[in-house]
Simulated assay, not measured.
Amino acid sequence: MNTKSIPTSTLGVVAYGANDLRITEVPVRPPAPDEAIIKIAYGGVCGSDLHYWTHGAAGESVLRAPMTLGHEVSGTVLVPAADGSGPHKGDPVTVHPATPGDDGHTRYPADRPNLSPVGTYLGSAARVPHCDGAFARLVTLPTRMLRLLPTNFDLRTAALIEPASVAWHAVSRAGDVRGKTALVIGAGPIGALIVAALRAAGAGEIVAVDLHQHALDVATRLGATRTLLADQADAIADAQADVALESSGSHRGLASAIRGASRGGRVVMVGLLPSGDQPVPMSLAITRELELVGSFRFNEEIDDVIAALCTGRLDIDAVITHEFGVDDTLAAFETARDASSSSKVLLRF
């Protein structure tokens, strides 16, 4: 298709500020030679999308201008890159939404670009100007972000590849989990996907913890061998897990992970806690010689996730609980923020 025949605007989901989410026309950016235009099929509503909607900010990333949301997406190539890079017209794709950035001063490991100091992410207000996301019917993206999928790959499942990659990265930070006991604190979408990744990695016992029984039921379908409600403090502490993965993003969750880890165990901190000091029992981490490690987004694990989905080693479809057309985005966001009755909510474009 000639780019001259592409519409100059398309329907998108834009956050203007706290409690101001609009389904409105957004421009279709003309592609550079190494960019393709993607017809988006599905998008997954992430916690950060919900925060931009409800608070006008996600952590310290504050909306200072209207921003198109979304970074968990799948679709097909409508217009391939003019330079011949990337997938061809009609190819199914998912998206790696990160662009690493080096400020020339801050040190970070070269093989871990997720830690680069001035990187950007689709649908993020961390920098000004903001990086618009991909919740739109047509999106222009660099081909380096695109990951080609098999022809018959379900595009609904493909929308989960980005959050599944976050989970896969978290499990890799836990080390070799084969045959080990793993404790997952917080069984929302990311926690549930961590359960699935642990199962794929060969973990022995997988104990999932959450405030809501609905989330625990989803975790069970994805591979949890045992579930506990978050108020079962004694049972959580008695888990004695080789690895504990905290995905609730709360200091109480991190405290539970520390208490539930075995002596000499490892705690992987996945959920992003609020900025500032957090009241957690660090004395236990010291006296039990726990290893506390962070886990932030992902790197090339996205390719491992795609391969595992193609072979059937990884099964994640059970995390999808609701699907809405883009015209019903507000209802989708309302549903997604009710953790007592939903897990991953998809928008259909």
Rank of each mutant, 00 (worst) to 15 (best):
G265E: 10
V177G: 08
I194K: 04
D91K: 05
A196Q: 11
G265C: 09
D154L: 00
G186A: 13
R173Q: 14
E205Y: 09
I302F: 10
L273Y: 10
F153E: 05
T10G: 01
V95K: 08
Y16C: 13
L138C: 04
L155N: 09
L198A: 11
L229T: 05
D304L: 14
G202L: 08
I320K: 03
M269S: 13
I306G: 03
H169L: 02
T54C: 00
S295I: 11
I23K: 07
A196G: 12
L330W: 11
M269V: 15
P27T: 09
S85V: 00
A167H: 00
A308V: 14
L229N: 03
S340E: 07
L273H: 13
H322S: 07
A331M: 06
S9H: 14
G179C: 12
W168K: 01
T321R: 05
L284T: 05
S341R: 15
I37M: 05
D34A: 05
G123W: 11
R22L: 12
S74M: 00
P33H: 05
R288S: 13
R22H: 06
L222F: 07
A237M: 03
L146H: 02
L254E: 14
E205R: 15
E162V: 01
A224H: 02
G204Y: 11
K4W: 00
G119T: 07
R147E: 02
A57V: 03
V13L: 14
I306P: 05
L148I: 07
N2M: 06
D91W: 04
A18T: 11
R297F: 15
R348Q: 13
R297A: 14
P33Q: 01
Y52V: 06
A32T: 06
D102P: 12
A230T: 08
I38V: 15
A339K: 11
S172F: 08
L193C: 09
T99Y: 12
A110F: 05
L228T: 07
V26D: 05
F349L: 10
S247V: 11
V45P: 05
D154M: 01
T76P: 03
G123D: 09
A208I: 09
E246S: 07
T225E: 10
A58G: 02
L228E: 03
L216R: 04
A126I: 09
H322L: 01
S116M: 09
G43L: 07
L141N: 08
A15K: 03
P7S: 11
F324G: 10
